[in-house]
Amino acid sequence: MLSRRLLLAAFAALLLSPFAAPFAASAQPKDKVAISALPFISTAPVFIAKERGYFDAEGIDLDIKIFNAAQAVAVAVASNDADFGITAFTGGFFNLAGKGALKVVAAQSREEPGYNFVAYVASKKAYDAGFRSPKDFAGKSVAITTVGSSFHYNLGMLADKYGFKLDAVQMKPVQSIPNMMAALSGGQVDATILPANNALKLEADGAGKIIGWVHEHTPWQLGVLFASSKIVKEKRPLVERFVWAYQKGLADYAAAFLAKDSQGNRMIGEKALALMPVLEKWVQPKPSIDTVKIAANYMDPQGRLLVKNIYDQLAWYQAQGLVDKSVKAGDFLDLSFVKGHLDLPKK
């Protein structure tokens, strides 16, 4: 069946090619652009903009390269295997950006009050022993992915806000989220920090208890859209067009997944259902409307950054000795592509 369909398609293409050729020639030749990304819902604005033709409308032929770790996404841009990247901040990201290879151009996810995204999860045992608040992390053992990951930074922000020493938290790097879940259910750590769907699964299994959400304590800029310094320098108009298309995707995403009703509950309606095929095509593992309801995280509808938080993050990583002291936020932030960035640091 398949081969017959392929044959038909090839035949059709042959027939149509004389007509297609002059048609293509009349259009502007498109710019080929590659973006490296994770197959997560947090990349949805890019997927939406691609599937709805927003990039095509800007004359951009976008190739989405899927990676499986935030690190790889940034490295791909640094090594010029991709022109853009979209992923969460990590210590590694700042170190790469500090070498002058990357420029941050727009926002991706952030922890926004009222939107559950990442949760603090206590083990059943620690919870029963009285561990009920993220203020009490001191003295607990906590599974994280790696040193310098966003989970590490989440703990750092908590320590700063509630005045405990980060050294008093026993951090156990276990490399991956499945390992973090296993360490918590196996009782090898007192707590961990997990994205909503993983946290809720652990709670449903009775292995852990959610004792708070990050947005309730420390809102912050989680992820960004960034470009290689080369393309920003040499093809500025192309970056501008790219960001416009991205913003259209963001707006669609926000309208579909971030709307709330009068009681403040998330509404997942017609617009969300209309976008499901796009997510099903790109997001791994394949999402259902229920998982999307939980995992759709907040993104600024216009791609505006919490600028001061980025300065804070960098300062924190540098204070931990995880990022080189010579790195300056101003050098890798390019705030000119998006208007009205939020919370600008006072000079």
């Binding site: 690190q71 940034a74 210590g91 590694g92 040193v147 310098g148 156990k172 790097p173 276990v174 995880l322």
Partner: peptide, 19 residues
């Protein structure tokens, strides 16, 4: 897995941090 000290952990962390 599960440690922050040791040359191996140090090398892995440095790799993760792109240092």
């Amino acid at each position: 897995i599960g440690t922050q000290v040791g040359i191996g952990a140090f090398v892995l962390a440095a790799g993760n941090l792109m240092q």
